[in-house]
Amino acid sequence: MTTATLPDTHADEGGPGWIRRNRMTLAPLLFLLPGAIFFIAYVILPILQSFQISFFRWDGLGEPEFVGLANYQELSTDRAFEVSLWNNLKWLVLYLLAIPGGLFIALFLNQTVAGIRIYKSLFFFPFVISQVVVGLVFTWFYDPTFGLLNTLLEGIGISPINVLGDPTLATYGVIIAGLWPQIAYCMILYLTGLNAVDPEQIEAARLDGAKGLRMLWHVILPQLRPATFIAFVVTIIGALRSFDLISIMTNGGPFGSTRVLSFYMFEKALSEYGFRMGYGAAIAVVLFLIMLVFIAYFLWSMWRQERGH
């Protein structure tokens, strides 16, 4: 097979005519094949399997028992699931604050003063450290008895608050911890984007009298569009996979108020007290459908861009 894609030095002895005639089609297909096989085996098939398992009751050991839509029915009355869904939404909306936050810092740092590289790397630092460390640092920061936050609050005469122990505040506390590295990530994306901004256009805008916000909105931002798109994609993905911070900072608590769908799925299917594979799979399917909305949007906008060129 492979010989057929090699340069044909022996025209008369070459492979069968069909392969030779379709060389231009076959070669890319062959190159795609390994990737496609792995993609199907490790992405597509598991997705389909999740759909299948979600119709069963299964503890991962015994015989699966077909229960139809019972898992989904249970989801619709499960308050923990409802809380997780809302929390996912909070994450999606609030996490997007990382984009304007990153843009602001990038604009601020986009100047030439001595040692600017050091400042830039300091601002980028939170993204370099592991999410687990970020989670621990913020847990200590929020600690109701010894934490820095409450020491500061006390200093200005406000009574201490237990951010991670209060079911109404805990999710916001975790999201703020998540924003810290995410803003740094968006900042880096915008810094590189700003390097590519055309100085001639800025010069021209300046001659036309554009300044400040008008300059930013009408001249700079349109040129930063690719960076904004990428920042949007990574932030949405980051919000949907907000698992590690929750696991480290609150473990889903207090009483399940900080769970998101991915964490709830893990709890139900894979944690110490879980092993309800069918129910976990049903949660996974819901999460997948939510992601699908975004994936479809990203694919659509990329396709539109490519067609535009």
Binding site: G253, P254, F255, Y273, G274, R276
Partner: peptide
């Protein structure tokens, strides 16, 4: 509790105990 009760019951119940204590 979490060894005497089935795992699933234990996880739901223990969350309830925590909530009750708060």
């Amino acid at each position: 509790f979490d060894r005497d009760a089935p795992a699933e019951m234990a996880s739901v119940a223990m969350e309830g105990f925590q909530e009750f204590m708060v």
